[in-house]
Simulated assay, not measured.
Amino acid sequence: MKERMVPAAIIPAIMDLAIKNRLNIESILTRADVGLAVERDSGTYVSISQQLRIFNAAYDVMDNPAFGLLLGESIQYHSLDLVGQLIATSQNVQEALDELFQFKDLITPFTTFSLEIKGQDAVLVYSVDSTMVRENLPVHHDVVASSVVSIANAIIAEGVRLKRVCFIHDKPEYLDHYHRIFGDCVEFGSVRNEVVFDRAQLQEPLLTSYPDYHDGVKTLAKEKLRSIESRESLAAKVNYYIARNIGVASTSLEDVASHFNVTPRTMQRKLKQENTSFVAIRDACRHDRALRDLADPSIDVDALAELLGFSDTSNFYHAFKRWQGVSPGAYRKQALAERGLN
């Protein structure tokens, strides 16, 4: 299956951090097995695996456990290409978050975001897909929270009024960096990664708001998303569509084929030409989603089975044991133990 491509927008920020710390950029790219053209051309596309290899190589070469926080601090809205421009030129915080949610795949397709309102709190929830990001997961959590807060502080007049910043990973040794960036409201070993701030700020105008320019950038962002999709095989498109719509919309063969404006028979024939099948792709998406959600202790197994489209929990148990070799309960116990949670 041809791998999804993304603009190399975050790579310059990694390179800038490397330069500030007097690291050899060529050694990082060599270690990641990625050509120098990625660093030189901001318009370059890279595969998700290439982006992750560069990230991991920079983390290894820098040899600083606070790498994620430092990288997040160095990322400003102009570091994130069209997505950063959309965020900065939005009218208020709510619109900026809406744009992040819609176009985040242009910068971080393995991260999901949602916003919850709880009383006077606005809760930005995010998760990094551990089936895609298999190394240095806590470092990715650090990057997301640090960059969100750094960008918010740059475009909100008085900065973001943080109430809590929660991480699912355990308390690390480099606490001083967390306190410097987030203050004293940091919590570790949480059920979810959250950035909690004052709900009233959602309607707060941004210093950099520019509605007319914003509309033009949004058109370009939509075109770039379409450009990425046009580079992919049908199998990659189907995989991505199912992964995003599990539990949200129907992922039956008929409905997925309709989304791509082909008949079910045509879709099956084209997927066969790419040496795969609809059943295999949907099975892989269900497997990946199950692995991700079982690592979250707040998600009920019965509810997960229903979300994945199984007629009953027993069928889900049989399928998961076929995929993973162990039951969902055994896998969850192992995943939580690795995070230091009961």
Rank of each mutant, 00 (worst) to 15 (best):
L36H: 06
N56D: 14
I25W: 07
I28A: 01
A57H: 03
D41Y: 07
A32F: 04
V46E: 00
T30Y: 00
G43I: 05
L17W: 09
I48K: 01
I48Y: 03
L52F: 01
R31W: 00
D33A: 13
R53Q: 05
A57C: 06
T44G: 04
R22I: 11
E26N: 15
L17K: 13
F55H: 11
F55V: 03
R40N: 09
A58L: 05
A18D: 11
T30R: 11
N21V: 09
F55I: 02
I48A: 02
A32K: 07
N21T: 13
V38S: 03
R31G: 13
D60F: 00
I28E: 03
Q50N: 02
L29V: 04
K20I: 13
I19M: 10
V38L: 01
G35E: 12
V34A: 02
A37G: 10
L17V: 15
S42P: 09
I48M: 02
G35P: 09
K20T: 14
S49H: 03
N56F: 03
T30C: 06
D33I: 05
S27Y: 02
I25N: 12
D41V: 08
E26P: 01
R40L: 11
D33M: 10
L23F: 11
I25A: 08
I25G: 13
G35M: 07
T44M: 04
L29P: 01
V34T: 02
A18N: 14
N24L: 11
N24S: 15
L29R: 01
E39H: 09
Y45K: 08
Y59L: 10
F55P: 03
R53D: 06
V46R: 00
S42K: 13
D33V: 08
A58T: 06
S47I: 01
D33Y: 07
E26L: 08
T30G: 12
I54V: 08
V46L: 04
G43R: 10
F55N: 08
L36N: 07
V34F: 02
L23I: 14
L23R: 15
F55L: 05
Y59C: 13
E39N: 13
A18G: 11
S27E: 15
I54F: 01
